[in-house]
Design a protein around this nucleic acid. Structure first.
Length: 402
DNA sequence: CTTCCACAGGAACCAGCGGACC
DNA sequence: GGTCCGCTGGTTCCTGTGGAAG
């Protein structure tokens, strides 16, 4: 009797679909990275001086999202770290994602804590944290490698002061040596950089090109072998995930997400196999989640502007800044919310564009002025759903959708 | 060739907040 | 408990501009 129960419970804890789901997670670093052999070799060559206790050149890495920049970097560093431990070299690396730590202060405080210095979340002057880092580096001789992932984020928001300081840090240090790896997925970003920083940071450069559909298939197959049980992937599933991701700039992370979520959907349904339909559903769900999350964290006026855009785009296909502003004013008046200036709305539209919720492009229409053409290519329902989670907006949404 | 629209977007600055320090 | 600091989400004032119309 208890055997039967045991059996059922065991079956419930064991997935029919996944052998090991974690392998499909974006932060998982596999033992091999297919189609990135050249990049691995190049980066390893650049960083090899570490093993002779010399400072390696600074490296600049570009490539679109999901092209394996972070994975390759961490992969190589993991190996070097192991090797330096064997050789008893005082080497250390610090990985900082500038999107998550998006102010100079947060970056420095993360750097500090990776060096074992405790700093408060806020309250100190940025320069004070910098001083403490210097002090720690002078205390003990070491080789430090700082990885700044998505480095374009701080530059765009806070200029290049911090970067300049970090690039020049070796001039101040007597004991320790510091190298930098900058990773960015914005290719144009380099051109806007101060030439002094550019030449210093770009002592070495590595460019990651996007994966094509076939390479993505390889990557997915390799991971799928370990992640899924045998024969659970239906025909064409991998190919479809690869194709969808390839269309979106060869983003491997997208492809892996699609595959994972498709698997999860199949499992939740109790299906025995993952089918193409699951992949399509996964695509919708991922988009929904992304929009939901982004919209949720938007300030009130950004939501109101988004709503104004939505209301206008419903009727036509595109709209302009002026129209959006007028509609926004109307919406605000109807619920007695104070309005912000057009200047701010213009910025908000840019922010919404950056977040991928709307498309905004500046165009000149000659006699009819220069403006932003704004459109949406998400399904309006997804946006309305996300917005209606804010109780303040509900009456307005009901009004618009009528 | 000039004009002129409808904004873009830079610069400087502000209030209010929360947290750490002394 | 006052002080200092950074961040957010604004403001005001401003100069700049692509290209159709005249």
């Amino acid at each position: 009797m208890s055997d039967i129960i045991e059996e059922i419970l065991m079956a419930a804890t064991k997935s029919r679909i996944f052998k090991n789901r974690d392998i499909l997670r974006p932060d998982y670093i596999p033992d091999t990275l297919p189609h990135r052999e050249n990049e691995i070799r190049k980066l390893a060559q650049i960083l090899a001086p570490i093993l002779r206790e010399e400072r390696p050149n600074n490296v600049f890495i570009y490539g679109l999202t999901g092209t394996g920049k972070t994975a390759v970097t961490l992969f190589v560093l993991k190996h070097i770290d192991k090797k330096t431990k064997e050789l008893n070299i005082s080497f250390q690396y610090s990985y900082i994602n500038c999107r998550q730590s998006d102010t100079p202060y947060r970056i420095l405080s993360e750097l500090a804590s990776s060096l074992g210095i405790r700093v408060p979340f806020t309250g100190l002057a940025t320069s004070e944290v910098y001083k403490r880092i210097i002090r720690a580096l002078e205390l003990k001789k070491r080789l430090l490698l700082i990885v700044l992932d998505e480095i374009d984020f701080i530059i765009k928001k806070h200029g290049d002061d911090l970067l300049y300081k970090l690039v020049r840090i070796n001039d101040v240090l007597k004991n320790s040596k510091v190298s930098l790896i900058g990773i960015t997925n914005d290719v144009n970003f380099v051109e806007r950089l101060d030439p002094r920083i550019r030449s210093s940071l770009g002592e070495e450069e590595i460019i990651f090109s996007p994966y094509n559909a076939l390479q993505l298939e390889d990557i997915l197959r390799q991971r799928a072998r370990e992640a899924f049980h045998d024969n659970v992937l239906g025909e064409g599933v991998i190919e479809l995930c690869a194709a969808i991701a390839a269309r979106e700039h060869g983003d491997a992370r997208r492809a892996l997400d699609l595959l994972r979520v498709a698997g999860e959907l199949a499992e939740r349904e109790g299906a025995r196999r993952v089918t193409i339909e699951h992949v399509y559903k996964a695509r919708d769900e991922l988009e929904r989640d992304r929009v939901q999350e982004v919209v949720h964290t938007l300030p009130l006026h950004s939501k109101l502007v988004l709503l104004a855009i939505l209301a206008l785009v419903k009727e036509g296909k595109i709209t302009t800044t002026g129209e959006v502003y007028n509609t926004y004013i109307k919406i605000c008046k109807s619920v007695r919310i104070e309005t912000v200036t057009q200047r701010r709305v213009s910025d908000i539209i840019n922010e919404l564009d950056m977040l991928g919720l709307v498309n905004a492009k500046v165009v000149s229409r000659g006699r009819y002025g220069k403006t932003k053409i704004i459109s949406i290519n998400l399904k309006p329902d997804i946006l309305y759903d996300a917005l209606s989670r804010d109780p303040r907006l509900e009456p307005i949404i009901n009004n618009i959708r009528g």
